[in-house]
Design a protein around this nucleic acid. Structure first.
Lengths: 112, 112
DNA sequence: CTTATATACCTAAGTTTTTTATGCATTAGA
DNA sequence: TCTAATGCATAAAAAACTTAGGTATATAAG
């Protein structure tokens, strides 16, 4: 697991992207999916995740649907229309960011 | 200028990388260089830069050398030996991070 | 000549986002 | 029956930054 510090600021985008690909997901599922997809590189803590989900919901980007599975509850989140738009926008910003950073830290860079 | 939020956590690495490529630089020069290299995508604010430089110096990663140019002073920073080691390490973490994020937000991802 | 912009340093208060540390409850497995 | 996994949550603290100042010199424009 590398420098978790670098992931600061990208949590919202990660959540939105997952919901764009998976229609609906619940919190715990998101933490597991991210751990799996990143091969353990990134572990989303619950202390970060739940407040983030609540904020996205409050901002109108996510809708919640509570389900009871056995005797335990799950809160399924999915994108609203606005959420879908915002996701596209945030993904573009992310791509731009990644391109810029790649360029900045490229080992060849600055030697030209 | 995209989402500045995404750059949170990467300032130290950016500074170190620049000093690895340019031997010595002063604060203002760093802000200008980053603006130029990123074509305005990233603007490092002085309120973020100077505290970061001071911290890197306090951590023993940078050495300072004060120079007088005309009637104005400049503080040139350069990597210490430890700083050079840390830079290599941080650049590896950055590459890992970029790879992981690229993978996570890849549009094709999650559709397989 | 005076005013705006660029150069060059700095700090402090406030905000945002995350970590760390809890808490509660259910279910499955050893 | 005890531990780990599932599933939600919050609250205090830390970290990193933005915003908003402050000081001073140099230079270009009007």
């Amino acid at each position: 697991m590398g420098n978790q510090k670098l992931y600061k600021g990208s949590l919202q985008t990660i959540i939105l992207k997952l919901l764009a690909s998976n229609t609906k997901m619940y919190g715990y599922e998101i933490t597991q999916k991210v751990k799996e997809l990143t091969k353990g590189e990134l572990k989303i803590t619950e202390g970060a995740l739940y407040p983030a989900l609540h904020k996205l919901e409050a901002d109108g980007l996510l809708d919640v649907e509570v389900a009871k599975v056995g005797n335990r509850l799950r809160k399924y989140y999915k994108l609203t229309e606005n959420g879908t738009r915002e996701t596209a926008s945030k993904l573009e910003e992310m791509q731009e960011f990644l391109k810029t950073m790649q360029h900045l830290v490229n080992p060849k860079f600055g030697l030209e």
